[in-house]
Design a protein around this nucleic acid. Structure first.
Lengths: 344, 344
DNA sequence: AAACAAAAATGTAGCGCTACATATATTTCC
DNA sequence: GGAAATATATGTAGCGCTACATTTTTGTTT
């Protein structure tokens, strides 16, 4: 009488058709054990006839609702982010949780704060944050007293206020640089990532550490800025290859940039790896789709996201929180065809 | 007294703190217009103090719930699918709907049917289906009397039982082939897509139509199978480049396969485009990240997904359905550096 | 067959919110 | 200043489901 007259099919409709009580229908549909086979059949038949399914909102309201995991990330087409998406999705799916996505456009502090707020409003019980937002959120104290647990995906360093799942970027960059040094390279160019990614600094530190360890003087002009995009890689490569004493190897902060270096080198008639070695970072699909296949660092985005989602779900479901600490996953060097000893 | 004692913060808690009725809190939080500024302030203060946000399940149950759009797709790392994900996400976000993701592993009929069922159980009010599942679902009548509207994303042809958003794959493939013919090519290899993609057939038909129109005899050995993966592209390229009379141009069913052709050609010491022209399809990011940059067909995945999501949301919200018909978006040829007149 | 135990089915009372109707405060106008 | 018009606030009655307690049925034992 009040309200729009609803002709919705409810659990009651089904109960009437099946000739049982609503609770029995609920019991069947949630396969709780205490239902006689005949009843189950009757209910299932009615369900099929009515093409019925439980209302998730009501279910959630009444009972123990579905676990919702929020994922906040930069809305750009980027293979590493893709793998994070895939990984979180796969895990939330497998564990019966729901993934709420929150893509951000710009990524200033305000947008990050608003994004967290939106996710919480939408019922997120835990939040995963991809870089660089995990770092921004942390450094601005946005996660300090968040009402839900926060997990940082692959931040550039262990973060104080968030759970972290990452690889040791410093060690990985150092190892790759060492590998290049081991091949005989001394003039190794390095293309930095985006300014605001903590990762950019960490990886560069690894590169410098390896040089220092090997007693090779650091030539500042060999370290050029980029922003992790293919285009910025083209510019950076232009700079490096235009140097009077040009590097015999270039280590880029990610695979897209390394692909750009490869592309520009080809344009300039350089043979890779004979004239120039190129190394990337992340091991995204493009690494094996360019020629020559790229030597790079395997950065398991999907696994990081998967671990993070698992942690988030556990925490959301009231699991005991381990000490707020960082988990370091393994990385490894994927040595392919783009690196070789320097010419001569 | 019954039930777990809940200490949840509800709208009532907020109302008490703010000294108003629960309804006023509701009115403020849904910014309905009829609230005095002083009341709004009081409520907002209480909300902030309690760090409160509305329970979405209850909101959804009580009122006009949130629109949920399901997206079913193949769970593989693939740039075109990525762009579909991004596009749907962006639009659902912008229109205040929620995206429910349903990645499929294998894709037999059973899994597709189950996926649709799951989405509906999870409250999807409309479902978007990416290829090849839209075609599978359609051909097996899975969408015939679905309780929610179904939108096919970029199927290979107009589908009878679903709304379709796509480009004219036939015409696009024909145009690209014509372009190659226009450059002077006569021996044009074609690498087909996956068997079960309707798209594979449609694109091949376009290729054949262009040859026929130009009066060029079709050499069946120039048409080889692939499955749209980089690896299959390597095999197909091996076959084509091993031919006694080898093609002077190769048109691949997607960019990954074209990248594989490029890679293999380089390995064999061929210069692209001098010795061999290569064309792809989709214009995914890799097209401009390999060298030489790939001539390809721009297939606007994000826009397709965006249009589809818009349609789905409109239908879900009770908008009038246009006649169940297909929308054709524009495609265009992206002419880059991988194509040139044949040698000699 | 009565007495008890276990299994199965049901009734009741909300979960936290909003639509709608109703009640109260404020403004407008003559 | 008071009636009418308007703006604002509040009560009531569920939305569709499930936890828990209760009742009914079925099975087991002596």
């Amino acid at each position: 009488m009040t309200r729009r007259p609803t002709k919705t099919i409810t659990i009651k409709t089904v109960a009437e058709l099946a000739g049982v009580s609503p609770m029995s229908v609920s019991n069947v549909l949630n396969n709780r054990h205490k239902v006689r086979e005949s009843t189950r059949q009757a209910v299932m038949d009615a369900v099929k006839t009515l093409n019925y399914s439980l209302n998730p909102a009501a279910k959630s309201l009444a009972g123990s609702g579905m676990t919702r995991i929020g994922l906040m990330y930069r809305n750009i087409e980027n293979a590493f982010l893709s793998s994070i998406l895939i990984g979180s999705l796969e895990t939330t799916n497998r564990m019966g949780a729901q993934l709420l996505l929150q893509p951000l456009e710009v990524g200033d502090v305000g947008e990050v704060a608003a994004g967290i707020q939106t996710l919480i409003s939408n019922g997120a019980n835990a939040i995963l944050i991809a870089p660089p937002y995990c770092e921004i959120a942390n450094s601005h104290g946005l996660t300090k007293d968040a009402p839900v647990p926060i997990v940082a995906l692959s931040p550039g360093d262990d973060l104080s206020e968030e759970y972290c799942i990452r690889i040791d970027d410093f060690a990985a960059a150092r190892d790759m640089t060492r590998y290049l040094i081991g091949l005989g390279h001394k003039d190794i160019g390095f293309i930095r990532g985006a300014e605001h990614h903590l990762i950019s600094r960490t990886r560069r530190d690894g590169y410098m550490a390896a040089l220092r360890d090997a007693g090779i003087a650091i030539r500042p002009e060999l370290i050029v800025d980029g922003d992790m995009s293919f285009e910025s890689g083209l510019d950076a490569a232009q700079t490096l290859l235009g140097l009077a004493v040009r590097p015999t190897a270039i280590f880029a902060s990610n695979d897209d940039v390394a692909a750009a270096v490869t592309s520009l080198a080809h344009r300039k008639g350089l043979d890779i790896p004979r004239d120039l070695s190129v190394a990337g970072f992340d091991d995204t699909p493009i690494a094996v789709k360019i020629w020559p296949a790229l030597t790079t660092v395997r950065h398991p985005g999907a696994r990081i996201a998967s671990e993070a989602a698992t942690l988030g779900i556990m925490l959301a479901r009231g699991g005991t929180a381990p000490v707020k600490s960082a988990t370091h996953l393994d990385y490894m060097l994927a040595i392919r065809e783009s690196t070789a000893p320097p010419p001569g």
